[in-house]
Amino acid sequence: MSYPIRVRATALVIEQDSILLVEYRDEEGVHYNLPGGGVELGESVTAGVHRELMEETMLEATVGPIAFVYEYAPHLNVVDSVSDIHTLYLVFECTPIEGSRPRFPDRPDGDQSGVRWIPLAELDGIILYPNIKPHIKQFVSNRRTIELIEDHHLEPYPRQIELRELQAEEDDVLYEMIREVGEGQNGFINSLYASDREEFQARLRRNAEIAQGLNLQEGYVPQTIYWFYVQGQPVGYGKLRHHLTDRLREHGGHIGYIIRPSARGRGYGKRFLREMLTEARNRGIRDVLLTCDASNTASRKIIEANQGMLTETTEDACKYWIQLFS
């Protein structure tokens, strides 16, 4: 039998040699718990500590580092288990905010009978669940904590792989890549290919207009060009057509892309197409059509690795559809 692990956010509040506990009365008598409870969906652990403290003791406090971690594993217990939920207690040292005092809550838990400051000297005389009284006393005499590292507070690395939308003005490194790509191959037409930098800049400005649907020639559709960067260097580019014409349904589809020759054979095509599909989804395109030469085995494998479904094959071309919304 498998046991999912539940995370329990728990507060350890010690002030003037007393510990804040929640009192319960049931058919077996009186026992105490540290304030705490299960972390809710969409909630951070520290936010859970704040909420549980307020719900059970009405105390506002600053949540500090982790004092200790306790695991309740019912499948390993040799005595009767009080619960069948495998639980990890993260016990945080908490400091009351000035002016805030604990009191009995307006909506107490079932069987909750009080909120008590228990002197540490009297701790051995009460029933505390779980029975971590020795660990609490050891912590008080030798405060050693564990820092909780929260990912959303970390300094992010620069993205290793990213798409950048074409701008009307671009750096020479992109011109050099376009020259390396050449006029195109395997059905991809390099519409940015230029004999000099001036012509390249003019093509950039024209494609920036096309992305906005400005001054389109008859039969053309808005199309956004994305540069594909790996570790800050351009390795390819792609075209995302915002919708299809009858002509594009036969050849071209929604997406076309190419990897510069010096960067091929490194698996970039698969990742590039995945990023382009994300952009298509962001634009609300439900189903994406990709076409490629029937003999282009590498492109076919890349499309199929991105959930492409082959719907039509001729001697010259293949059509694949990828569903982005179910």
Rank of each mutant, 00 (worst) to 15 (best):
E71S: 08
R103K: 15
H135M: 12
Q201G: 02
T291Q: 13
L41F: 13
V63C: 11
E198M: 07
L53F: 14
Y129P: 00
T87A: 00
A263K: 02
D106M: 12
R274N: 08
H86D: 07
D84W: 13
S141L: 09
Q233H: 06
I97A: 12
K133A: 03
E250A: 04
S18M: 10
S44P: 07
D17R: 15
V288P: 08
Y3H: 14
L123T: 08
T95W: 09
F139Q: 11
D111Q: 00
D316T: 06
R143G: 11
E304L: 09
H153S: 11
Y237N: 03
L240R: 11
E170D: 08
Q233C: 03
I303L: 14
Q217M: 07
I127L: 08
F228S: 09
N282L: 07
V181L: 15
Q307R: 13
W227M: 05
C318S: 04
N131A: 06
P96H: 15
I19Y: 11
D316F: 02
G114R: 08
P156I: 04
E15Y: 15
P119N: 01
L289T: 10
S326Q: 11
S141T: 12
H254Y: 12
D111H: 03
I178V: 15
P74N: 04
G238M: 03
I255T: 08
V63T: 12
Q307E: 14
D109G: 00
E170Q: 08
P35I: 02
V91T: 13
E176M: 00
E169W: 03
S195N: 13
S141P: 06
F104N: 04
G110M: 11
L240E: 13
G267W: 10
F188D: 12
V30L: 07
T10V: 11
G232Q: 13
D316L: 03
E98H: 11
E40H: 06
M276V: 04
E98K: 12
E169L: 02
T145F: 05
Q223Y: 05
R51I: 15
R206G: 05
R300W: 06
E155N: 10
L174A: 04
G38V: 02
E71A: 07
E209F: 00
L59N: 13
L128P: 00
Y226W: 14
K270Y: 02
P96M: 14
E93K: 04
L76E: 15
I258A: 05
L174R: 09
R25N: 09
E56K: 11
Q201P: 00
E23W: 02
H254S: 12
N296P: 00
E180Q: 08
V288Y: 10
D26F: 05
G29W: 11
S81P: 01
L59G: 10
N306R: 10
A168M: 07
V181C: 14
S195R: 14
L310W: 01
N215W: 02
R116K: 08
G38L: 00
E40Y: 09
R241N: 15
N142M: 10
R247C: 03
Q16A: 10
R203Q: 07
Q212D: 10
V69C: 10
V173G: 00
I136K: 09
F68D: 15
E180I: 04
